[in-house]
Design a protein around this nucleic acid. Sequence first.
RNA 1: GUCCCCAUCGUCUAGCGGCCUAGGACGUCGGCCUCUCACGCCGAAAACAGGGGUUCAAACCCCCUUGGGGACGCCA
Length: 483
Amino acid sequence: MADLQGSAFILINPDCKESMMNKVIARFAPSPTGYLHIGGARTALFNWLLARGNGGLFLLRIEDTDVERSSQEMTRAILDSMHWLGLDYDQEPFYQSRRFEIYKDYIQKLVRTGHAYYCRCTPEEVEEMREKARGLGQKPKYAGKCREAGLQPGPDTVIRLKAPQVGQTVYQDQVKGSIAVDNTQLDDLVLERMDGTPTYNLAVVADDIEMGITHVLRGDDHINNTPRQLLIYQALDVAPPVFGHVPMILGPDKKKLSKRHGALSVMAYKEMGHLPEALVNYLARLGWSYRDEEIFSLKDLLQKFSLDNLGASACVFDTEKLKWLNSHYIKESSPERLAVILQEHLDASLPVPAQEYLEKVIPLLQPRASTMQEMAEMAHFFLVPDQELEMDQKAVDKFLTPEAREYLREVSEILAGMEEFDQENLEQAMKVYIEEKNIKFKAIAQPLRVALTGKTASPGIFETMQVLGRESCVNRLRRVQGL
RNA sequence: GUCCCCAUCGUCUAGCGGCCUAGGACGUCGGCCUCUCACGCCGAAAACAGGGGUUCAAACCCCCUUGGGGACGCCA
């Protein structure tokens, strides 16, 4: 790109179509100062889709230059979350903390070419300048005191970008459209701190150049950083990547999602019993749409995702819709897989059930549970020892009348004498019994349910009985006689 | 305060000047099914923030107002 510095109107990256022709290289660049939260996960997903959906590369960069707040554990946790969601990356992760030499080179190049200068102003002085600007009703910024001072490196100096003071910086945002900022709004940002470490904006630009990044999709909250970064690209005389800023995810109160109101980590959703494909599907639809469709697998998304269908406005995270998607995927999943997941959610006081048994229980719960946590609660009566089954007292009082107990006593004897203890034969046996007694099925359905499950709501009574098995059914029916 | 961004049912959204008496989905409310609870099916209520333009024609284009969000660090 030509050096346009100083011209009245600076147009950067007027059209991305040409670069779209080349191989897409996108990245996700989390800072390991916290868990991977819902917003970060969506950013990662979109970048992954952009790269993988176009035969490109998806790289990972760990922005751990803040040694104080970054940790190895958080990096691990972020990687685990991405793995759980099914977002894999190419090459080894790039760690900014190991790349300080590269940043030094970039900064020195800027100093050499006259695009950066040494500054001796103290943080207090700079703060005064900002205050002054604020007082004048202007945007707080560094006033440029050392800009023309021609200072040499020293122990108390930082390096600042010599940013253009006229014209404007314009770029085509892939989701927002044209964005323009007057250069007077921007100041000479610090590139290298007093301790010699690079600042965020410099490191990002240097890395994106080094990594060959073609597309930067990131949160809306970075929209104001983009013009600053563009200025660095310009000073470096390097063509910038394509930028796109996806809208923020808001909490139910329409405020930026934070730990206070449910900006939970990805892993928290796992613990609540959400399936990864449900979370991916939900996140994808938050800010993106494809006609009237709602259900998307990762594979569908790969094929259908495009920047064109990204929305521009902020959206509210809706737990109810997530749960609906989750219940959908629970219905779609195999009992084999769900059994493994369910184990993690079961009450620790329960005896560890066999995989085969869970696989019989789960089909009865699939249409009823919207999270695996819920399923674990529903599965409880299937797994608890007969003598420890908790009984809902209100249900007992209402349905286990003396008359009903007598029916149950007789039924328990019938069950004990049955040949094939399956749903079909159970239904037949009960039919015969109620005809014999000349009663309605309703007269014994709820008493049976309460006796067997302890509750008034459960899966179908015959399928429940078949899964529980003869022994448990008889045990439980006998047990209620004494209650 | 200054700058930037955004604005269709409660929520996620379709809509890219005429197909819109605004479509879908979640949720809500009815109904059907039914051994309970679910699932499923059927149906209903529910939105173009306001005001000016442009145009034969505006939810769609422009401007203003209002509202919301974000950013103004030697954090990332």
